[in-house]
């Protein structure tokens, strides 16, 4: 094996390339980790919220966007068939209770492409939201909002402008970022 060291030492430039590539990859992955995967850009952000009138899920009457105007609003799309929705369920119930006690904002759910019986069974099992949900069986409203996957949550300020959209389960960190944008101190 000694013959190897006798060969004239060439400046092995590939060494620097290899080291630099490895560092670049680690840097990229490290920055990637700090990104919030649910932050999807939306054409709606900065735009007025689409107006809607849809039937309530578990009661008579109609959920109207006009009735919700004038106050900051959290609008949550959910479904019984969506497994990730279960992860954010407790967070939503807390948020609903906070909305009731503080009165600083409104919150509403949209039951998306779901069967009412299954949705009712889901709520009976996981716990009822302290706020009403509208029923969007064909996903019409989802199209207006550009819903991409379940669950998705839109944050709308008092002026009716969509300020943020979050795809995936809500977490305390997401709420801490989103609520101030619609003028609510969490």
């Amino acid at each position: 094996m000694t013959d190897v060291t006798q060969s004239p030492r060439r400046p092995a430039r590939w060494r620097y390339a290899l080291g630099a590539a490895a560092l670049a990859l680690l840097g990229l992955l490290a920055i990637g980790l700090t990104r919030e995967p649910g932050r999807l850009p939306s054409a709606l952000v900065g735009q007025p919220m689409p107006a809607f009138e849809i039937a309530y899920l578990e009661r008579e009457g109609v959920l109207r966007s006009a009735d919700l105007a004038g106050e900051p609003l959290v609008l949550n799309f959910w479904a019984s068939w969506c497994t990730s929705c279960r992860q954010e369920h407790a967070q939503l119930i807390r948020l609903g209770q906070f909305s009731e006690t503080s009165g600083a904002f409104r919150i509403a759910g949209i039951n998306y492409r779901d069967d009412p019986d299954r949705a009712a069974a889901y709520l009976a099992r996981e716990g009822r939201f302290p706020y009403p949900s509208g029923h969007d069986p064909r996903g019409r409203l989802g199209i207006d909002f550009g819903v991409y996957g379940m669950p998705e949550t839109f944050f709308i300020d008092a002026g009716g402008i969509v300020r943020m959209r979050h795809a995936g389960p809500l977490t305390a960190a997401v709420l801490a970022e989103a609520m101030p944008r619609i003028g609510v101190t969490p």
Partner: peptide
Amino acid sequence: YGLIIWRATM
């Protein structure tokens, strides 16, 4: 990769 770079001449 560190070991490879270190042993490059071998």
